[in-house]
Design a protein around this nucleic acid. Structure first.
Lengths: 156, 156
DNA sequence: ACTTGACCTCAACTTTGGTTGAGGTTTTAC
DNA sequence: GTAAAACCTCAACCAAAGTTGAGGTCAAGT
């Protein structure tokens, strides 16, 4: 009988290698995620990691969120707000999805705005002119100064 | 008479501090861009940088391209293809804009696709199911945060 | 028993896009 | 003529998101 079936671990507990294989994420990445508080593990007597099956969904969610461009630190913060004791429900996950969808929407909106302005500028080649909206993004990095805010309103 | 008007430099040559002030980019960043081949400078007898006025447009273009998510190395490559001896024309810049617009379009397309899939998944909370399109991305996004993207699914 | 593969920790290294500071020179301004 | 401001180079450092390797332990198959 394999250690993985040891009754002190959740039914069907997974080793780190198994999680890696099934999630498509490198073992080193799983270790890394653990140091960042994105996932957690129990340890066997021999100090090896054992994950509950739910970790696969969790990793899947992390990867989707990453694809939307959300940094790991924010993902960690969002996951930390999931209910602590019980396994998250479909509605818990859906809540996260909604929040991330909103961020994604915002990113798409900003990029589209930039594209439209780039379109306008293609015609005139004005990129360096004072009047060009692309050249005067007062909020490019610091959002300081009370400029015209032509670009990326609400940056943050 | 100021050194900046020394006839051996292009009319209206700019010091690095002036470029920084007028472009909104830190002096250290201009130095950095120079090491990366994004901009070039002439030197005074005393080894200080002098930039032709065109550098302002060039820096403006760099910043716009960066905002579309294009890495500096690609921006450098694109700028390197500009005609070498004469100052770039409006059409030269417009050509760059068109190329970047296409990349931007592609990024927007991928993000929109991701959003739509996220929409579909909000209803069912399916994020970890095998059938979920979000879990099986055929269509990875390019790098957009910092850091290597070595593990994008099926990237090559 | 032994060998192999999977696992452990910890530290160092990678890339991108810069910033910060030390130590020294040049230019400008009074 | 001197002080301050601006400039120079070079090296080290930052963050994010990991990867790689060294040195050692654990588990599984024969």
């Amino acid at each position: 009988m394999s250690e993985l079936d040891d009754p002190v671990f959740p039914v069907g507990a997974l080793s780190v290698g198994e999680v890696a294989r099934r999630s498509g994420v490198a073992v080193s990445t799983l270790h890394f995620y653990e140091t960042k508080g994105l996932i957690r593990s129990l340890r066997t007597e021999g100090n090896q990691r054992r994950y509950p099956r739910g970790v696969l969904r969790r990793v899947a969610v992390i990867k989707v969120a990453q694809r939307t461009g959300i940094p790991l630190a924010s993902i960690q913060a969002a996951l930390a707000r999931l209910p602590d004791g019980r396994a998250p429900t479909a509605e818990d996950w859906a809540g996260l999805s909604r929040a991330w969808r909103a961020e994604l929407d915002e990113r798409i909106r900003k990029l589209s705005q930039l594209r439209d302005q780039l379109d306008d500028c293609i015609g005139c080649g004005c990129l360096s002119l004072k009047a060009c909206p692309l050249r005067n993004p007062q909020d490019a990095l610091g959002a300081q100064g009370a400029g015209p805010r032509l670009l990326e309103p609400d940056a943050g």
